[in-house]
Write a protein that binds this DNA or RNA. Structure first.
Lengths: 101, 101
DNA sequence: TTAACAGATGCAAATATATAAATATTTGAC
DNA sequence: GTCAAATATTTATATATTTGCATCTGTTAA
């Protein structure tokens, strides 16, 4: 028998993990670059953001692990992209909420 | 002279702080209860969620500090409510992104 | 002015996260 | 197979977060 309360807790937990994954300046910047279905490699992102390769890979790993991004390997490169297009909503919302203060 | 890069960094930082504030199971649950312009007291929230009063107050303080909630004192009670209605978008988005997995 | 209620704050222990440096793995070219 | 490029993982250190308890501050009503 399935417990609704439990399900809800799991769902909240999942949502929180997803948000926690996004809630970092560099990771928000990554999402911005991936809006509109764009796909970028680790190297492209690490150069765009000007941060270490290993740090970039780490951030991408977190985003993927928590269900924010997907990745596809093509040859030596791994392309990362948004798992759900609607996630752009979050970035947009943040953009609107942070301009008035 | 203002540095655009710097501004952008500050803005990202602010956005990340706002998201970090939301990114917690209990705090997402709080936002859910406040959708639609509802105002609730600390006690109401602490009873709704079934968590300690002081823990509730801590969470509300974080959300207020990071610009997610506002509060108004009325007599013995303090009512908390969403600062920006559009923040419901984030909760909605999470709800949609967490049902398919 | 005191009792009782509502909320906020300080603190400490447990836990989680961030970063970078070093190292490992995977893949394609030769 | 060997090498180099692209990416991932490991590790260690520093820092931040979460939670509950105890306590403190306001506020209302007796």
């Amino acid at each position: 028998m399935i417990n609704i309360q439990e399900l809800d807790t799991d769902r909240l937990e999942m949502a929180a993990n997803m948000l926690k994954a996004i809630a970092h300046p560099m990771r928000i910047a990554i999402l911005k670059h991936l809006e509109g279905g764009k796909k970028l490699t680790v190297t492209e992102i690490h150069e765009l953001l000007g941060i270490e390769q290993s740090t970039t890979s780490h951030h991408l790993g977190i985003l993927k692990d928590k269900g924010v991004l997907c990745s596809r390997r093509e040859g030596k490169n791994t392309y990362y992209y948004l798992k759900h297009d609607i996630l752009s909503q979050i970035v947009d919302c943040l953009q609107r909420c942070t301009c008035s203060e």
